[in-house]
Design a protein around this nucleic acid. Structure first.
Lengths: 334, 334
DNA sequence: GCCAAATTCTGCAACGATGTATGGCAGGAA
DNA sequence: TTCCTGCCATACATCGTTGCAGAATTTGGC
């Protein structure tokens, strides 16, 4: 049905292999032959069969991206950028949503998903470094965003702790003393939540402000949870003059709840988030947050992964890349 | 390197083809044989090579999704749902971002992207129905969201016109008479923008409110454009008591600009959007909008596409499915 | 116990590309 | 003339799977 290399070969009066050689830029081909083949290709509208090529070469030119949920704005923006960066280098990205379910994460590491891709960008939310190492095959893997600083794995991330500390310091400098933290993950210290919480505590320490566990609300990073967490604090009568949402959607959910209840932002309570999603700039009031250098993260993680795949990177050492962050001071916490 | 069907066959003491038969649920296999094969598979940790299977069968069990930009919240949420719906049926989704560039849309229809997928979910923003028909191969295609109501194509969409009319009627019922519209696409009538604008005009007509072209601001559907459009209207001195953003991010951008300039929402100007993205519920004030029945859209478009792929649907007639919408009245336009 | 039919299993040839090995044919050196 | 080298093109095997056709075995009816 479709035009194959064989048809092209027949049309150009050469062997099948010569067509293959033309396509793969083989050195020794008479210009005249090359032209005949290329003309035949154009005439017949030949397109290489990627599946056959993959079977033969063992490469798919697809990268896997494993994240919890594409509908989360941060991941959506990141995925969009990653796909564009990959596309520029001749790769596609296949996305797998784990919903933070360990089994799905595992399957992404070894199952059919792995087979379909030449390398993986992985955001491990549930499974641990040793599990990854166990199940990891020979294909390259770059960890994304979280902070499993393990000599076995490449990692591209941002300065979670430093950024959180800088943001907290900013709130403290604004005179806030009781800063609620929303979105902690108590059983985890290496993930973004843990690192950001550490940054927060460090900034408090440095300012000599005591840490109060009552101000920390654990929850998953969703808008409605942010709102519920603030509601919980208010209902319990916990006093606070600022809210630090460990990511933007949490902060925005929290801000919504505050405003509904007549709490003024930032006059009564300042609000700050983390991620600088597009929405943060246009919220009302606009949201003070940390910009994680997403463009740099996308570009460098794709670059690193493809370098590994194509063997351009020394294999003996894992790369640990930390993108630069920027504090974005806006209305919600001036 | 990897375990192949041949290895399994040897281990189970059967022919390679019998292993294949077991994997493909061939009817006539002795239970004992089946078990021997399955045990061998489990023991060796055999996993089918999807590339080889694709080459042989001509199917990839991947669906293509073509949209303009995954970082737009509506598309991100839609893509997430589509991927989950596809996953339940044993398919994966490969996303292509067109950035509303015609050439990319074309390539998605016929290039390598098409080859990698068994069927396409396509949101045509630039190219026209005839172009699609020209370049369309034999693989199934379902149009998504836009309104190319053409007997040649399957279409899953929502009642854009009706919903826009209902929303406009709601604003009119609230006493608004000068409703600005943001995000029109003047050169296009079959797309979402055109249909929604028509619905708006229809509702005005029915209420006997004159249409004023000065109230219509054309722009692409981005948050910053929404803000800029409102700024333009205000600066030009155009009077209005409501803003209808043709989608939510436009409305949210508009609302942001209004609030910055001290215009009260909804007291001075009501604001309404379209899409009911997650963010709408948590904006401040929360955004009145139209919920497009996204779950239904996702479920039915995936179902339809897979039915076509697997030949379960009569081929002689295109399906035109319109999901039900819901008006979500919130604070921004009570 | 025999034959036809039903069941169970197998071998071969693809799917469409690429790597390896090798075959011709020039032209220059011996 | 003979041999070698460099250039260009080809044949064959192969990647791992499934469709087709048919071989081998069992079953059932009488």
């Amino acid at each position: 049905m479709a035009v194959t290399m064989n048809d092209v070969a027949r049309a150009a009066g050469v062997s099948l292999k010569t067509v293959s050689n033309v396509l793969n830029d083989y050195e020794f081909i008479r210009p005249a032959t090359k032209k005949r083949v290329q003309d035949a290709i154009a005439e017949l509208g030949y397109e290489a069969n990627l599946t056959a090529r993959s079977l033969r070469s063992g490469k798919t030119r697809m990268l896997g991206l494993v994240l919890s949920d594409l509908s989360a704005p941060y991941y959506a923006e990141l995925a969009s950028r990653l796909m564009k960066a990959a596309s520029r280098r001749g790769y596609r990205v296949l996305v797998e949503q784990s919903d933070a379910v360990g089994e799905v994460e595992l399957n992404a590491l070894q199952g059919p998903f792995r087979q379909l891709t030449d390398g993986l960008l992985f955001t491990p939310l549930v499974i641990a470094a040793d599990t990854i190492a166990d199940r990891l095959g020979k294909k390259p893997l770059v960890l994304l965003g979280e902070h499993i600083l393990d000599p076995r794995f490449d990692l591209v991330t941002m300065k979670n702790g430093e950024a959180a500390a800088a943001l907290t310091a900013h709130l403290l400098a604004g005179g806030r003393r009781r800063i609620a933290v929303i979105g902690a993950h108590p059983d985890e210290s290496a993930g973004s939540a843990g690192l950001r919480l550490n940054g927060y505590r460090k900034a408090l320490d440095e300012a000599g402000v005591p840490f109060d566990a009552a101000l920390v609300a654990p929850c998953e990073w969703r808008r409605d949870n942010g709102a519920a967490a603030v509601a919980g604090l208010l209902d319990k009568g916990v006093e606070f003059d600022a809210v630090f949402g460990l990511n933007d959607v949490l902060a925005l959910g929290a801000m919504h709840e505050l405003l509904i209840r007549g709490v003024r932002v930032p006059q009564d309570v300042a609000v700050a988030g983390f991620d600088d999603i597009d929405e943060a700039r246009f919220a009302s009031p606009s949201l003070t947050t940390v910009s994680p250098g997403m463009e740099e993260i996308a570009e460098r993680s794709i670059g690193l992964l493809i370098d590994r795949i194509e063997g351009r990177e020394a294999e003996d050492q894992a790369a640990h890349i930390e993108a630069e962050f920027q504090l974005k001071v806006r209305e919600s916490a001036p």
